[in-house]
Design a protein around this nucleic acid. Sequence first.
DNA 1: AAAATTATATGAGTTAAATCATACTAACCA
DNA 2: TGGTTAGTATGATTTAACTCATATAATTTT
Lengths: 230, 230
Amino acid sequence: MKKDKHGCDLQSCMLCTLCIPAWKPALAAHRQHLTFKKGELLFREGEPVNGIYFVNAGKVKVHKHWGEGKELIVRFARDGDIVGHRGVGSEMVYPVSATALEAVNICFIDMTFFQATLKVNHDFLQALMMFYATELQESEKNMRNLVHMPVKGRIAHALLNLQRKFGVNEEGYINMTLSRQDIASYTGTTYETAFRIMSDLIQENIIVLSGKSIAVKDAARLAQLELEAG
Amino acid sequence: MKKDKHGCDLQSCMLCTLCIPAWKPALAAHRQHLTFKKGELLFREGEPVNGIYFVNAGKVKVHKHWGEGKELIVRFARDGDIVGHRGVGSEMVYPVSATALEAVNICFIDMTFFQATLKVNHDFLQALMMFYATELQESEKNMRNLVHMPVKGRIAHALLNLQRKFGVNEEGYINMTLSRQDIASYTGTTYETAFRIMSDLIQENIIVLSGKSIAVKDAARLAQLELEAG
DNA sequence: AAAATTATATGAGTTAAATCATACTAACCA
DNA sequence: TGGTTAGTATGATTTAACTCATATAATTTT
């Protein structure tokens, strides 16, 4: 983690666009620009909450761990996204970890100032509430999928999700590369199973790999796999 | 569902306690008192959102369905709890169903008035945001458990959860009765598996049944089952 | 009170996915 | 530049949990 001065442009993230004009100077004074290298932790599950992270650039995975080396990725964040808001609550301890998947650029707001911001900026508070509501819906949908979908359907769902969230390049490859282990952690399965199913999907000509990049060739088939009950 | 006039006392639920005094008359005018019989649906997954339900009395299960007859219970609500807030979002369609588990007493606020309430009552909005944040944490914890815990651990967790949420009577029985099917749906397993594991827990003298009521005899053992990784 | 529906109970068989075991390959860093 | 670690690749084995089948008990409905 590195601190430096220049940071966001004060007009792209959700906080900057929704806060009242009078609050902007305070915001400009309090925000801290942080950078993280690939693999670095923004914060760790169980640590006391120190603030909220606004991603300016880069990709972050948000994950919960369990026992020895097992984890579940609950979300990916990209530029414009908020990370660390799961720490808001009575416990004041992060319930998840966040790890940079590539070089990441953060606009950090400490918790005290964040609380003050909530008090003053009604529109931001409302947007944040809506954001939580959406995340809760997402989370419970994923939860249902985890229970009732077979692994193949979950991987299909995950790939379509990633494509929607991160988009594709000119050749159709998803603008996001993940290790097989991360795919497994995101879909709630083991590395080996994730690997085998990815191989199946390639065999069936539904997806194509180029190095670590994935292109969805047959979105319809993927969508259909989502529906086939377990 | 039945409508009638008398309803909440305007001072116990979260909305009533946190709204500004000036808003109380509007609130009193707009709230509707609804009652539901055991088994009745408050609303169904996929229906357009019409409003928010504040539970005055009774127990409600909130569930998501999948395919033929499969469901996942994501939450139980009791008096003082909010139901239907999962409908808040861009979609304006309930992502879950809610079913009365016993005779239920509801204070209902239609969506338009609820939106207006959010605009005017900053404290309520903030409390609601915190509530969402907590629910999101809960949801993701359950999600992790569903993935990494064996069924026995999940049932142990569920029983401790229910005990904490609903309390116990003089003889130590949880103030909440559930069918085996609901226990299964809550822990993401099948009826048969839930049944077998409940039998195990009884055999091991960790829980005791009296009719449909469950008493936890050995909370320490249950808590330990939660920790044993799958 | 009889019929019908819904919940409980339990054994047997099957299977999806986890675990274990073992190479190979690429990336990293000292 | 060689050594260590992290990711990829795949076969064999095991098992937890699901599915299927069937019986009984308890409610609810008519």
